[in-house]
């Protein structure tokens, strides 16, 4: 029996993540919602979701005493970051007058901006909310059976500007082309919500559940 730990640090709706993992897993997997660093250390796979603001997320991670457990998991086991759970893996976010994050990867999380427009001057709403395409810019086991350009559900006002091109696994166009998916070694993380992205999202979670953690 394998344990998939979903990190619960009080940030947002984790029920959907647990539901979706249970829907794609089978009897060999146990999905465990946990705030306990020890349980995270023992889990076979770790899912790190997150919603809300970067400052609140970082505060919550430390209040729950989870920083070391998350960093260790991201260095050692199949690890899936979702939404804010991707952004805080980076070293810095512009949100909340600047927030230092976990710094596992180099890059910067930036605001789309007030009065945001595309190149042709069309107003774009912020948050970027709804179904947008993810272009797969490198091959990865988690893309198995997912068409390049498939739509996933997004809701966010800040986006990742990755510093190292080799980190980028997927991009999405919203006024600019931003990094919507990153992958390195045993870590895969997305800005969008696979747990809310119907068949494509469930396929990605299914791929994660069976992934050996090798890129």
């Amino acid at each position: 029996m394998q344990t998939i730990a979903v990190v619960d640090y009080g940030m947002g709706n984790l029920r959907s993540v647990v539901n979706a993992l249970e829907a794609v897993g089978d009897k060999r997997y146990r999905v465990l919602l946990t705030s306990d660093p020890q349980q995270l250390a023992e889990a076979d796979r770790v899912v790190f979701p997150g919603q809300g603001a970067a400052g609140d997320c970082m505060r919550a991670i430390d209040e729950y005493g989870l920083r070391d457990a998350i960093v260790t998991a991201a260095a050692s086991r199949p690890f899936l970051g979702i939404c804010m759970g991707m952004q805080v893996l980076i070293d810095f976010s512009e949100e909340n007058q600047g927030t230092d994050c976990l710094g596992i990867f180099k890059g910067k999380v930036k605001y789309f901006g007030d009065g945001y427009r595309d190149q042709s001057g069309v107003k774009l709403k912020v948050p970027h909310m709804g179904w947008n395409r993810v272009t797969q810019v490198k091959s990865h086991p988690l893309w198995h059976s997912i068409d390049d350009g498939s739509r996933f559900y997004f809701v966010h006002s800040y986006y990742l500007e990755a510093q190292e091109p080799s980190l980028v696994a997927g991009t999405t166009d919203y006024g600019i082309r931003f990094t919507s998916v990153i992958a390195r070694d045993n870590v895969f993380a997305l800005q969008c919500h696979p747990e809310k992205s119907a068949d494509s999202g469930l396929q990605l979670l299914r791929n994660f559940v069976h992934w050996d953690g090798k890129a």
Binding site: N19, A23, A198
Partner: peptide, 28 residues
């Protein structure tokens, strides 16, 4: 929420923060 994996919005009779918390915990 156990069966349908697209965003769910719930409205009607939401008056308190605890109403919101309850619906989010249910999977909204």
């Amino acid at each position: 929420a156990r069966e349908v994996f697209i965003p769910l919005t719930v409205g009607g009779g939401i008056r308190e923060l605890s109403d919101i918390r309850r619906m989010l915990n249910a999977g909204a």
